[in-house]
Amino acid sequence: MTSRLRFVIRRLLLTIPVLLVMSIIVFLIIRLVPGDPVRTMLGFRATAENVEQVRHELGLDRPIVTQYFDFLGGLLRGDLGTDIVSHASLADLLAQRLPVTFELTGLAMLIAVLVGVPLGVRAATGGRWIKRATEGFVVLGVSIPDFWLGIMLVLVFASTLVLLPPSGYVPFEVAPLDNLRYMALPVLTLAVGEAAYILRTTRSAVESVMTRPFVGFLRAKGVSESRIVFGHALRNAAPSIVTVIGIQVGVLLGGAIIIETLFALPGVGRLVVTAINQRNYPTVQVGVLAIAAIFILVSLVTDLVVGWLDPRVSDGAAT
C-alpha cells in the first residue's frame, strides 16, 4: 500500500505548481490590460483623484512583487476584495453564485454519464443498428454548438409547447420544484453534447478492451458474455472513461459560462461575462479564479480515481 500512498502524495504535490501558475495568470489579468487599467475601468468621466483612490485600493501603486504576495495572502485568508460596481464583498458574491454553477454542471454531467456510458457499452457490443444510431447521435451531439441547441430547446419547450420557462432562476432551497423547472433546459442543453463525448469514449474504450487476449481466456473459462462486458470490459475501460469525464468537466465549465448567459442563470460564468463587459476586473479575476480552481481540483480527483481504478498507474508500472 505504500506505493499507493506515495502516488497520492506525489500527485498532491504536483498540484502546488499548477495552483501557483493559475494564481499568476489571474494576478496578471488586471495588470496586463493595455494602458491604464484603472482609467479603463472607471471610464473617462472619472476624476483624477477618483482614479488614484481606486488604484490605491487595488494596491496597483505598489511594487509588482509586493502586489503578488498581497494578492496571494488575500487568497489564503479568503479575502477576495470587493466588486468595483456594487461594492459587495467578492467572497460573498462567489458564495451566492457558485451553487448555481455547481448545480448546472453537476446535473448535466450526471445525466451525460447515465446516458453516455450504457449507450457506449451497447454501441461497442451491439449490432449494426445500434452502432449506426449512436454514431449519428455522437456526430450531431459534437457538432451542434450548445448555445444554439439551447435556443432551439427554448423555441420548442418554452415558446411553442410552453412547458418550461425560457430563462430565470429560483434557488433550490426556496422552491425546489421551480428550481428544477428552471434548470431543466440549461441542464439538458449541456448534457446532450457531454453524453455524446462520453458515449464515444466508452464505445472505443470498451471496443478496444474486447479485442484483448484476456477476453478470449474469459470465454474459454465459460464466463457469460454480459459478465465479460460489464465485469471486465467496462472495468478495464473505466480509467479512460474517468479521464475523459475529468477533462470534460473543464469543457462543461466553459459551456456553463455560455449557458448561464443564455438562460440568465446567476452563476459564476455569467458573473465573469458581465464583469468583462463592465471592465470590472477584480470580479473577472475572482470568477476566473473560482472556475480554474474547480477545474484543477477535478483534475486532481480524476487522477486519484484513475490511480485507484488502475493499480498499474499507482504502482508506477508500465503497461
Binding site: V21, I29, V33, G250, I257, I276, V288, F295
Partner: peptide
C-alpha cells in the same frame, strides 16, 4: 502545459478580458 491550467473557453475569455473584445 501552463496554458492547459485553465479550461479552454475560460482561457479565451481571460485573454479577451485583458485585451478587450
Amino acid at each position: 502545459d501552463m496554458v492547459l491550467v485553465l479550461p479552454a473557453l475560460l482561457l479565451a475569455i481571460t485573454f479577451i478580458a485583458i485585451l478587450g473584445p
